[in-house]
Nucleic acid binder design. Sequence first.
DNA 1: TCTATGACTCCGG
DNA 2: CCCGGAGCCATAG
Length: 107
Amino acid sequence: MDKNAHFFERVYAVARKIPYGKVTSYGAIAKFLGVAKSARMVGWAMNKTHKDETIPAHRVVNRKGLLTGKHHFDGTNLMQQLLESEGIIIKNNQILKFDEVFWHPNS
DNA sequence: TCTATGACTCCGG
DNA sequence: CCCGGAGCCATAG
């Protein structure tokens, strides 16, 4: 079956569900999709997602709340600015109060 | 076909 | 939390 084909759309769907001012992790998305072992694939999918502006890829970070993907955005600090504009505080590429702004897909 | 790579995560110390 | 090592799997060359 073409589960992989659905994989992308699932990632997109979850990413779009991330509420304003909230963030989540690649592993949380992967686990929610039933492919917890493929968190890297979520990151890879995010790279492709970059083509779709309707998907807030900047709200997806690694499990530590670190902006590992900021280098993939146009500017050097675009990702951080986008998050800060939503009320999220970032220090040294890391989200502060990560436990407070963390959002789980099943919410 | 095989190897290297990566927007990751878990585990033990 | 930090560090090193291992697992994971789709894509690129």
